[in-house]
Design a protein around this nucleic acid. Structure first.
Lengths: 137, 137
DNA sequence: GATACGGTCATACTTTAGGGTGATTTTGCA
DNA sequence: TGCAAAATCACCCTAAAGTATGACCGTATC
């Protein structure tokens, strides 16, 4: 940049131009630079549009049939499924722990793993999704 | 602008600064001007990102019919039913509050009333029971 | 036998849910 | 118009849920 300035300086001096013209040139060049910089560096606003993608779930009206395919898809283990079932029946973690003869911490760990695999944050969401996927009755 | 240039010119001459510093000041000022111009006049870029949201749709499962009789039986109000529905979709009390444009405390009150009327202790039980009573889908 | 995974459990921490109480404001209906 | 139910909100407190991390053990699997 300094080099450019020097070059401009000598060039304009040689052709014996006025200081004002020189300044004007600098101004124009750097205004352009500013515009260019702003346009280049200005990251575009990201507008997120949620597109609803319908997934049809076939729910038989008869006896409950575990969707093994969906189960394998989300990679939920049998033990986790047990926890999920009890969750769906409204049991607390403490109650689930007692029923499965394990500690509360174990159920918490299972819960966290289930939420991760189902990509949800809460047990109510987990139950909702699990029912829609026919993982639980 | 010319006035500004003049002022800068005289000012720098008076304090006997080098031409380079003067040029540098001009450059900085007009770069800033350029950036400002670009940001002001450039219509904001909007980058649209489409995010697919999976919607689970039941099939072979007739339309949901609210069990008005059961609703009257448990004496759950319309507003409470709204809360119950959102509960069933896995929303937290905070999220429900935002959706219904009321405070978190209000939702807590509704929740407590719902639990009392459904004779349950937790939201998961409430959702389970409400679904069995056909109060929510 | 190294590796991966499932299941178990713990500790520490933050967040959310729920209980109890009391209060004010709307609103529907007699 | 006045009353009762519904809806709103606040405060305080406890319980439960959830997050993060790390650890140990058994069992397949390569």
């Amino acid at each position: 940049m300094l080099f450019l300035m020097r070059w401009l300086e000598y060039r304009f001096i040689i052709i014996d131009n006025s200081l004002e013209l020189y300044i004007a040139a600098i101004a124009i060049i750097f205004t352009s630079l500013g515009i260019w910089l702003a346009l280049k560096l200005n990251s575009p606003k990201v507008k997120t549009v949620h597109v609803e993608k319908e997934i049809y779930v076939y729910r038989n009206n008869g006896p409950f049939l575990l969707n093994e395919a969906a189960l394998a898809e989300v990679a939920i283990s049998r033990r986790e499924l047990e926890v999920l079932q009890l969750m769906g029946e409204g049991f607390s973690n403490q109650e689930i722990a007692q029923r499965l003869f394990v500690s509360l911490n174990t159920i918490k760990t299972h819960s966290s793993n289930i939420f991760g695999k189902l990509e949800v944050d809460r047990r109510t969401q987990a139950v909702d999704k699990a029912k829609k996927l026919n993982l639980i009755a």
